[in-house]
Write a protein that binds this DNA or RNA. Structure first.
Lengths: 96, 96
DNA sequence: GTCATTCATCGTTCTTCGACGATAACCGAT
DNA sequence: ATCGGTTATCGTCGAAGAACGATGAATGAC
């Protein structure tokens, strides 16, 4: 990743982010997080017709693409979107 | 698709376009087409270290996502970017 | 008509993804 | 120390993706 992880440096990076976006459930998760600004996995699980393990996997994919950040808060994990990274994605898509 | 195929109507549609973008070769193809405005498959094949059948497959995926259009021109096929559809993608990503 | 070119499609192989249940790890509260 | 709630990971299964070579259809040139 780029300086402070904010830049999209390569087509591979852009492709990785697009791939992470390439599933309806993950788009819904992203929108949900955008509304909430922060939330825990169980809230996302309640929002989607998917098993907890499946949602956790989607969150992992979004996290590995850098689009969300998860911080441990006691027994739970709080996820929020990574604004700079999301902005970088928008810029990269705009440049197409 | 939306009116004249220009709008992104659903998360499924956005996810489908993102999925089509989710491969480095397809991003390169899209950039290449953006530079050229129009070109034939063989030119794309020459640009990439991939077999002709593989490139044809990538072009099919981009076409089915609506991001490029292919028109038959004699024995070849001319591909060009679908500008309105690409603009719709940018708007949809911006709305995240 | 024949031939070369261009491209899409088919069949194959290997890999990756999506989804689930089950399990384990972790923490707070009791 | 144990229990309940929360999340990640593992194993599995079927489905989809990526890549290739080979084949075939269409066209323009000869």
């Amino acid at each position: 990743m780029g300086i402070l992880g904010t830049m999209v440096e390569s087509d591979d990076d852009l492709a990785a982010m697009a791939k992470a976006l390439g599933h309806p459930a993950r788009i819904q998760i992203l929108r949900f997080l955008a509304d909430r600004e922060t939330c825990v996995t169980s809230e996302v699980v309640d929002e989607l017709p998917l098993a907890q393990s499946t949602v956790s996997e989607h969150l992992r994919i979004l996290r590995e693409a850098g689009l969300v950040q998860g911080e441990i808060d006691g027994p739970r994990t709080r996820y929020c979107i990574n604004p700079t990274r999301l902005a970088a994605l928008k810029m990269a898509v705009d440049s197409l």
